[in-house]
Computed example of a mutant assay.
Amino acid sequence: MIPTTPQPRRPVATVAVVGAGRLGRPLARALSAAGSTVTGPFGRDQALDTRRVDAVVLCVPDAAIADAASTVRASGFGGVIVHTSGATPLRGSGADAGLHPLQTFTGDEEPEAFAGVGCAIAGITPEALDAARALAEALGLRAFEVRDEQRAGYHAAASVASNYLVTLLDAAEQVAATAGLDGADARALLHPLVAATVANWASLGPSGALTGPVARGDDATVRRQRAAIESDAPHLLPLFDVLRDATHDLAERGRIRG
């Protein structure tokens, strides 16, 4: 069951944010706007004072979580340490809780960018889980629990939906260039198509959103597309073949269910 957008709850009173990257900066702004007293975001070489802090949120690369958590504990901090990794299990990380907004950030977002966004939470104790939920709901995030053994699959789904989509769109842009549509022009022309496709997927599901020559069984058009890519962008041919086959399977599943 997908959680509904919560009413913002009382914020965690004092929070330190470690990491001044793409997530750390907007997260610190959003927590402050939600009513928390926020210190940071602290960069790699900045000293961290945790004496009057209820929670420390680590917005650092996955490989740096354990060392960052150890440094925080060594400072004498006795509160909740929260990491923001989608993939890293809590066990062995040094963190007490997890908070992973299911969104992409550039570092310049305003606080409202968190409102209504899904957020994977976890805690090694009920109290730590409650702290993660309180942080998420104070930001207006839609919290849902993901256990340690589920994290890799959850994060893989996020990567396919976001990171790999960008890679796929880069391939589309490269193919468009072979038709004389370069860079910004290609993106401006393809963007409405991409946006409508994503909206249809969200409302209709994969089978309902699928259109195009593979879906309608137009093999002649698919062969012409493949020949064009083989001629003008041959390095993309393996990707085209994999996507064509996967799209054919999706179309078949839709016909079977229909």
Rank of each mutant, 00 (worst) to 15 (best):
P61M: 05
A63Q: 07
A63R: 15
A64K: 01
A66Q: 06
A66N: 07
A66W: 01
D67V: 07
A68V: 03
A69M: 05
A69I: 04
T71A: 15
T71P: 00
R73I: 05
S75P: 05
S75Y: 03
G76S: 08
G76C: 05
G79A: 11
G79I: 08
I81T: 01
V82R: 05
T84P: 09
A87W: 07
T88L: 13
T88D: 04
P89I: 08
R91L: 11
A95G: 02
A95Y: 00
D96G: 04
D96H: 03
D96K: 01
A97R: 05
H100M: 02
Q103W: 13
Q103D: 15
T104Y: 04
T104F: 06
T104M: 09
F105P: 01
F105H: 01
D108I: 13
E110F: 03
E110N: 06
P111H: 06
P111L: 05
E112W: 07
A113M: 13
A113Y: 13
A113S: 15
F114C: 06
F114L: 13
A115V: 15
A115R: 15
G116C: 07
C119F: 07
C119R: 07
A120I: 00
A120P: 02
A120T: 02
I121N: 00
I121V: 15
I121H: 07
I121E: 09
G123L: 12
I124A: 09
T125L: 09
T125V: 06
T125Y: 01
E127R: 10
E127Y: 05
E127M: 14
E127H: 13
A128K: 11
D130N: 15
D130I: 14
D130V: 14
D130G: 15
A131K: 15
R133I: 08
A134M: 11
A134V: 12
A134E: 14
A134R: 14
A134Y: 07
A134N: 09
A136C: 10
A136V: 03
A136D: 02
E137L: 13
L139Q: 11
L141D: 10
A143E: 02
